[in-house]
Nucleic acid binder design. Structure first.
Length: 292
DNA sequence: CACTTTACTGACTTTACATCA
DNA sequence: CATGATGTAAAGTCAGTAAAG
C-alpha cells in the first residue's frame, strides 16, 4: 500500500490500515497447521548450478557453511529453527543471493566494496557481523524508488540492486522495512487524528446534551407553536447532524425519513436508523463535519 | 570526555497467502 | 481437484550504530 498525503487518500488509508490491522490480529491469533512449512533438508540441492554467485562462493570459502552464515547469529536457537521450521527461509535466501548471473557481478562488486561485506567476513564469530549503513546516495535512490512504487517486482529489484551496488535481498529487506515503518508512522498519525476527533465529538455531545436539558427545562408551548418551534430548530441543524426518532428515541442520520425505519430493515443493516445499531467507521474527509 | 538512553535501521523469523507444476 | 514447492508481504523482533542528554 502506497502512502499518500492527500486528505482523501488519508481517509482511505486510515480505513485500510485498520482493516489490515484487524486482519493481522486475526491471523496472528490463528493456530498454525504445522505441516505447511516442514523443512526439507535436501531442498538446498535444488539450487541451480548456474546460479551460484561469486559472493556465495566467498561466503562458502569464508565460513565453510553458507547455511550457518544465513542463520541469525543473535538467535540461540537459530540453527535448530533452521532445521525445524525456517529451512525454507534459508533456501530462499540462498536462492536470492544466487539468483542470476547479473547478480554474480553485483555480488562481486559488493564483496569488493567496503559496504555489504557483512556476508563474507565472518570466520565463525557471531560478533563479526557488522551493520551495513547505506550511503546517502543509496538511501536517496531507494526513497525515490519507494515513492514511485512501494513494492518491487523481481525485475525492478534486480535493476535497483544493480544500480545501488547491493544484493537484491538487501533491496528487498529495505523495502520491507520501509513499508512496515511507513505504515507504523501512518498508524500513529491516524491514532492522534482519531483522538482529536474523539475529543471534539465528546465536547459536541456534551454541548448537545446541555442544549437538550435547556430545551426540556423550557415550559412546553401549545401544540402548533411547539411544532413550529421544532421545525425551526431542525432547520437550523447542520446537514450532517444526527436526528433522533421522536417515538423510539433512536439516533439516525438526516436522511432518515419519518417513521420508515420502523418497518423491517433489521437484519441487513439497511434500516434508516441502523447507524445507531451498527457503528460506522468515521471518515472525516468523506464525511466532513464540524466536529473535526 | 565517558557513560547511558533513545531513535533509527538493516536483517532476520514466522506466518499467511497466492501461484504454479 | 489435491498437493507440495516457491515467492512474497506483513508483523514482530533483534541488534548495531549514531546522536542526544
Amino acid at each position: 500500500m502506497a502512502s499518500s498525503s492527500s486528505a482523501e487518500d488519508h481517509g482511505l488509508l486510515l480505513g485500510l490500515t485498520l482493516s489490515t490491522a484487524h486482519r493481522n490480529h486475526i491471523t496472528a491469533t490463528a493456530a498454525n497447521p504445522n505441516g505447511v512449512h516442514s523443512f526439507e533438508p535436501s531442498l538446498s540441492l535444488t539450487l541451480l548450478s548456474d546460479q551460484v554467485s561469486d559472493a556465495d562462493a566467498a561466503v562458502r570459502k569464508g565460513t565453510g557453511c553458507a547455511r550457518q552464515e544465513a542463520s541469525p547469529p543473535n538467535s540461540a536457537v537459530s540453527s535448530f529453527s533452521a532445521a525445524s521450521g525456517g529451512g525454507r527461509m534459508v533456501v530462499k535466501r540462498e536462492r536470492d543471493v544466487l539468483s542470476s548471473t547479473d547478480e554474480m557481478e553485483t555480488a562481486e562488486r559488493v564483496v569488493s566494496s567496503s559496504r555489504a561485506s557483512d556476508d563474507d567476513n565472518d570466520g565463525g564469530s557471531t560478533a563479526a557481523r557488522k551493520k551495513l549503513r547505506l550511503t546517502k546516495d543509496q538511501s536517496a535512490l531507494l526513497e525515490e524508488s519507494f515513492k514511485h512504487h512501494s513494492t518491487l517486482n523481481p525485475k525492478q529489484k534486480q535493476a535497483l540492486a544493480r544500480q545501488l551496488n547491493l544484493r537484491p535481498r538487501q533491496v528487498e529487506v529495505w523495502f520491507q522495512n520501509r513499508r512496515a515503518r511507513t505504515k507504523l508512522k501512518q498508524t500513529e498519525v491516524d491514532c492522534e487524528f482519531l483522538k482529536k476527533c474523539c475529543e471534539t465529538l465528546t465536547d459536541e455531545n456534551r454541548r448537545l446534551h446541555k442544549e437538550l436539558q435547556d430545551l426540556k427545562a423550557l415550559k412546553l408551548p401549545p401544540p402548533q407553536a411547539a411544532a413550529a418551534a421544532a421545525a425551526q430548530f431542525y432547520m437550523h441543524m447542520p446537514a450532517a447532524t444526527l436526528s433522533m426518532c421522536p417515538s423510539c428515541e433512536r439516533v439516525g442520520g438526516p436522511a432518515a425519513g419519518g417513521a420508515d425505519h420502523h418497518r423491517g430493515g433489521g437484519s441487513d443493516g439497511s434500516s434508516a436508523f441502523s447507524i445507531a445499531q451498527k457503528p460506522q467507521f468515521f471518515n472525516p474527509f468523506t464525511n466532513p463535519s464540524a466536529a473535526c
